[in-house]
Amino acid sequence: MLRKYSNSRTLSDNIKLGTLTAFVAGMVNVASFLLFFSFSSNVTGYYAVMMSELIKGNLYQFAVVAIWISSFFFGSFLSNFIVIHFNKRNAYLAHAMPIILEMACLLFVGVYGSYYYKDTLMETEVLLLLMLFAMGLQNGLTASISNFAVKTTHLTGATTDLAILFSMFTHKEYRNKQHIIDKAKLLVSIFASYLAGALVSSMGYSFLKFKVFYIVSLFLLFVIVYDLYKIRSVNRLLRIRKKGEEEETPEKIGTEISKNNRNEMVLQ
């Protein structure tokens, strides 16, 4: 899910990454709206809000929204920065690091909200900033490693893509093209997962409140650990194979030596 990069990724890799991260995005977005009356990944909407606040002369609100948009920007920037600079040294770590940072941000929101939140506006703004940063990290990572095939924090572009794909299915020339079917499968799974996340979050919010972010963090932990487990399994297999080869080699040498000895004896 996280190990492979760009064109070496399979549809299955993208679906796994897309569904898990879309579920997280759905949960975070709904939780932020229910807790703070603001979305945490609706960046398009924030551009409109920012300009309308400016027109109304609400400079404070304008500045707050501008900072939120910037934090989403920095999240995506940092994600891709980590991927392109550290991909060659350790691909897994380069791809897992943005998810680890995202998890840290959301876990902080959960812990702070549960134990220290005093309901002040400053706290609300900072916690939303962290959520937008986390969503930027996630969107930057998924888009970066999947060659822009997977974007999970907002569905505007995905809705457009899905509409285009569905319209293509009305034409028999495109209906059976595998790459179009694959793209549709990916988008439908992202949509379903985002909605499921949103549903779980809105149902759990009334009794979990900020603890919703603990569940979100568990999902992100699963994304990180899943690939780590796979890498460990592959490494273990490689080690076993290597060990087997090493054990085989002395035996082979031994049989060849004894064959030679036998030949020498025959000659004598």
Binding site: F37, E53, V64, W68, L121, T124
Partner: peptide, 11 residues
């Protein structure tokens, strides 16, 4: 009662 502002200070 308790009062607080939410969002960007708009609620």
């Amino acid at each position: 009662m308790r009062w607080s502002l939410k969002g960007r200070g708009n609620v």
